[in-house]
Structure formats: C-alpha cells, structure tokens
Simulated assay, not measured.
Amino acid sequence: MSLTNTDKSILITGCSSGIGLAVAHGLKGRGYRVFATARQLSDVTRLQQAGFEACQLDLDNSDSIRAAVDWTLQQTGGNLYALFNNGAYGQPGAVEDLSRDVLRQQFETNLFGTLELTNLLIPLMRRQGYGRIIQNSSVLGLITMKYRGAYNASKFALEGLTDTLRQELHGSGIFVSLVEPGPITSDFRKNAYAKFKQNIIVKGSAHQQTYEAVEKRLAADPDPDKKDPFTLEPDAVLKKVIHALEAKKPKARYYVTVPTYLFAYLRRLLSANILDIVLRRAADSENR
C-alpha cells in the first residue's frame, strides 16, 4: 500500500527534549501527523503549545500506556502508520551497587513499558497490513561500558527483543528497525546525574573514588566552546528515522555517530579480552 506523508501518523515516546523532540519537529515539518508524548504533564502542555497533538504517556504505568494508545487511535480513526519508541533514561552506577529495585526501574521504562506499548499496537498494524516500528537503542546495546550496567542491560535486552520481533513479523507488512546512536546532544546526562544522586550510595562503595569523579563530570556545566567532535545533534537521528519510515525495505539497524560505527566494527574484529581493554580505557578517560 502506497501512502503519502500526509496519510502517515506516528506515535513518539519521550518527546520532552533531545532526540524525541527533534524527531517530532522534523517529521511534523515533513508532513507526518505526529502524536508526541511525554511523561510529565508540563512537557505535554509545552508540546501542545508548540502545535503538536500531544498527550501524557508514562512508560512505567500500564494505565497511562493504554490511555495514550486509546487517545491516539481516537484521533486517527483507528489507524497508525508508525511507532517510534524513544523514551528511556540512563541509570549510572557499578553493577555491585545496583539494588534489585533500581535495576527493575531501569527495565520498567527502557524495556517493559516499550514492550507493552508495542504489543498494544501490533494487532492494529497486522489488521492494516502495514506499519513501521522503530526502536531507539544505543551504542550501549552493542558494547558495554563501566558504570552503565543497568542501561547496558536494558538496551541489550531491547536489541534481543527487537531482533526476535523482526523475525516474527516477517511477511506481515510491518517493518521493525533499530536506531543505535552514540553521543547525541540532549538532557540525557542531566537526567542520568539525577538518577545517580537518587539511587547510588557513594560513601563506603568500593567505587567511591570513581563516583566522586563521575559526580564532578556529570554536575559540571558543559563548556559551549569545547564541543566533543563525536557528539552530534539530534537531527542525525532524525535522518535515520526518516529512512526507516520511508524506505521500501528499511534496514534492520541504523548506526548514528562515529563511535557506534567504530565499536560495532571492533566488536567483530577484537577478542573479548582486547575489547575489554579498549572499553575500560574509554570509560576511564571520561573521568580523568
């Protein structure tokens, strides 16, 4: 079935800032009917003031997920072209300092809520005979880095579920793609610092010295004159999302930023021990 952009509707999670907001603006400007969602009502209001059809969607809350789906389908008359699962956050901390509850919270947002939302929309897309599901993963769904164990695990799990889903939906007319960004300009670091302060006990940890360096880094205001050459603006992700939405045969994976391409290559090339050395050094260099 051939659809023009004006016929295409898309539901996007995590539109309060960063990638979600940039993709929402970019697709709206391209003629898509964008349903932008955010966890906080204040962000929903801001999205509405910016001209979006927007509603609250808290990935940690099943009632909120169902209400957002019901509202979206009421607006569209029961059809939906695409879903962009973008909502997520990062929980810093060494694995040995993560409680069961903290790890569960990470998975509730980054995996379980995403799964529930996706599964509510798959039957609709099956009835239509078409649809696009795009998962915003991370380079940390390909490789791991120290003190990001909760986030690493959630993204590795998302990749596994998504690869399986793509196989299971083959022939249905529904295409499933992963987007794997490296460093992107966003509020991710600020939000990660808040979660670190909330959930990680620094004093007495075997990693206390590193944590103090992490706190110093995360709390510091970024120097506007010192731009990381590997950090891209969110529009870099938008370009990949557009291809995943509009290509006749979208890719299974879309890499974004040089570090993602580099580490994906090194993962295939190097032994586990050598790759560990490279990744340890990369993580250590951040906190010097």
Rank of each mutant, 00 (worst) to 15 (best):
Y89C: 01
R100T: 09
V176L: 08
Q106Y: 00
E246C: 06
A150R: 08
P123S: 09
N136G: 06
Q56T: 10
E212T: 06
V258S: 05
N119W: 14
Y211H: 05
D97N: 05
Q40D: 15
T118H: 02
R126L: 11
A50H: 12
F112W: 14
R280C: 07
I133N: 02
L47I: 13
A236T: 08
G182Q: 02
R280S: 12
T109W: 13
G93E: 11
Y151D: 09
G129H: 04
L238C: 15
A68P: 08
I122F: 05
T164I: 13
K195W: 04
A264Q: 06
H170F: 13
G87Y: 03
A192S: 15
V95C: 07
D70A: 15
F84L: 10
L73S: 07
G93W: 09
L165F: 13
S138N: 04
K227H: 11
Q209V: 10
L275C: 10
A88I: 11
L41Y: 12
L169K: 14
K190H: 10
K197L: 15
V237G: 00
N136W: 04
V202N: 00
R66I: 08
N110E: 08
I65W: 05
N191F: 09
H170S: 09
D223V: 04
L269S: 13
E168R: 09
D276E: 14
K249H: 12
S154D: 05
L238K: 03
L218N: 04
Y211M: 05
D284S: 09
R127I: 06
R33N: 12
F84P: 01
A283H: 14
F188H: 11
Q198G: 08
L115I: 14
P181R: 01
